[in-house]
Design a protein around this nucleic acid. Structure first.
Lengths: 151, 151
DNA sequence: TCATATCCTATTCGATAAATAGAAAAATAT
DNA sequence: ATATTTTTCTATTTATCGAATAGGATATGA
């Protein structure tokens, strides 16, 4: 599951994508207000995105935030990785942030690794293939699962 | 990321798969000892697996646990869902346990839902396609990512 | 130099993860 | 029947993390 933080980050990023390209800077308080996000929390999120090269920031009057590159070149997977960490289900099945699990020495668990890598490749294939530009184009018109669930 | 609990559950399940079919019952303490899992914690996990129809249990002397069905019919995805919940990244993109996110009313987030559903289908496609039988067949012989990472 | 915004540090609050303890309940060998 | 063994239940613990807030320091442009 995504953390709230990651969802907020995605919403903020899509918001910024919608105003791209932008000569002026977008206020954190504007994002917070229109997206209904906790302002202070959002600021912390934007700092993280900045530290990872997703957004640029400018202090002081007429400061704010904007994307560092065109929305078409920022992927959903990029943002999730920054906020929530690897897409993989275990450190040992991650490709971008590989690490040994605490209990990774176990051969039985290691028999799991191949399938976990497949899983991580499968999610990454989807999330790294969807850009902010695509999301910013507006709400999707396909029937949502909400409709199906009610039916 | 998987919880430790889910990893323990998988290891325990693969262990049980290796002794299938089994006329006798396998002790929790045997699983704990050979797999190096905290015994009491493992017991709680086995109860959850039992409550969800993955294992059967028998109390008293010569009691223990065993799989309710052939390992080929128990998928990695089944076990992860029982212990860690839906494979999806949000409740609203889950198919087996659909639910509305706390902030799901937001149209921007809703523009995310299609891609999140794709992601969930992609992971599920992998994890629901890998059975305990496959894992029990022994450690995988493909080059592991550990080797690649060291290189 | 003032207004405004980001940025930094600290703190809170609650929930969840990961486990442990101890006793009750059940099943069986003897 | 009874003792033994094993699951099962209830409670508690401890630490960590998620989510958020507070307040001030720092930078920027008018």
């Amino acid at each position: 599951m995504l953390s709230s933080k990651a969802k907020y980050a995605l919403r903020a990023a899509v918001f910024l994508a919608k105003t791209y390209p932008n000569t002026t800077w977008t206020l954190a308080s504007d994002i917070a207000a229109t997206q209904d996000l906790p302002k202070k929390f959002l600021e912390a999120i934007l700092v993280e995105l900045r530290d990872h090269g997703i957004v640029d920031s400018r202090r002081g009057r007429y400061g704010g935030y904007r994307l560092t590159r065109p929305p078409s070149r920022i992927k959903v997977g990029d943002i999730i990785r920054v906020i929530d960490g690897p897409l993989a289900l275990t450190p040992c099945s991650s490709r971008t942030q590989y690490g040994v699990c605490a209990d990774c020495v176990d051969p039985v668990l290691c028999s799991l690794r191949p399938v976990l890598q497949e899983a991580r490749d499968a999610v990454a294939g989807v999330l790294d293939n969807c850009s902010l530009a695509q999301l910013a184009e507006g709400p999707d018109t396909r029937p949502s699962p909400a409709h199906k669930a009610v039916a």
